[in-house]
Design a protein around this nucleic acid. Structure first.
Lengths: 153, 153
DNA sequence: CATTATATGAGAATAGTTATCAATTAATAA
DNA sequence: TTATTAATTGATAACTATTCTCATATAATG
């Protein structure tokens, strides 16, 4: 696992409920971390084909991690992705480029005011939120305007 | 369909691409509208069991509506729901009560500032967004505090 | 070291989705 | 109206995704 601290948190969360951090489970977590936290189950099944981990084990591990809040599921369009749910990562957003598919994480939150207003208007107490933006990333936009210039000639 | 205007928009979008508004397609759309815009495919398959519409037709219709931007898919937790994508409904948010599962639509947007900041910091041009809040709705919270009082006695 | 609990992999079973094709329905032209 | 063509449907088969089963393996505990 990336850092020793994270690994210890994972072991603790598992142990508290009587589970173990097996080599397969650790391998799967590392895969997700190494791939920017944005893998689908299909991706994982393919990536573990070599050091063969059975796909039932993949499904079981993901489910377990979700239930212990070690992973969190995020949904972009047609696919479910999994990302580490440790630390205080609860308040970040995702930018998805519709041109190249890149996923960018936004570090700031800025929804406190909105949550306050929701409580005032609807009496709804917000515990958690997910926000994703679709659009065009910087690089794709630059490519686009470069192409546009070419046509002008 | 609810209003004549909506039906005409749907017919136009279909016709422009050479498709027809069949009774089955209209029935499915009406189901979604009548159920507060929040049905899963499974729900729809069950609801159409009586005036039998084959389930391949359900899948095909949903797919078609998505491709023509007549429906839009939203994802809450484990399920995909479908809602009408007509009018300027693009900027509303969803509140999901984790106690009773109710889905409430929030009429206001308030993300312009955030989108501006994202452009400034990341050069990312936002075209669209989805935001959902999980928490406790007014009614469930009231029930909760009522229960809490009972225990105090 | 023996015993018990937990986890694994292979494949069977189930659920969810898509593709195929003959029959039906709607649109268009004569 | 009738003939012709295009689009749609429903039943079922095919395929994909996910879960279950069970014998075996591994780790923890006494």
């Amino acid at each position: 696992m990336d850092s020793k601290i994270e690994k210890e948190i994972v072991i603790k969360r598992l142990k508290d409920k009587g589970y173990l951090l097996t080599s397969q489970r650790e391998y799967i977590l590392n895969l997700i971390i190494k791939n920017d936290n944005h893998l689908t189950i299909k991706d994982i099944c393919h990536l573990v084909e070599d050091p063969t981990i059975g796909q039932s084990t993949v499904y079981r591990a993901i489910k377990l991690f979700l239930s212990l809040d070690i992973l969190r599921k995020i949904n972009f369009g047609d696919n479910d992705y999994y990302e580490l749910s440790l630390e205080n990562k609860h308040n970040h957003h995702h930018l998805i480029c519709s041109e190249c598919g890149k996923i960018i994480e936004v570090g700031f939150d800025y929804l406190e005011d909105l949550e306050k207003k929701i409580y005032e208007d609807y009496g709804f107490i917000v515990k958690n939120h997910t926000l994703r933006f679709c659009g065009i990333c910087k690089e794709c936009e630059m490519k686009r305007s470069a192409d546009a210039k070419t046509y002008e000639k």
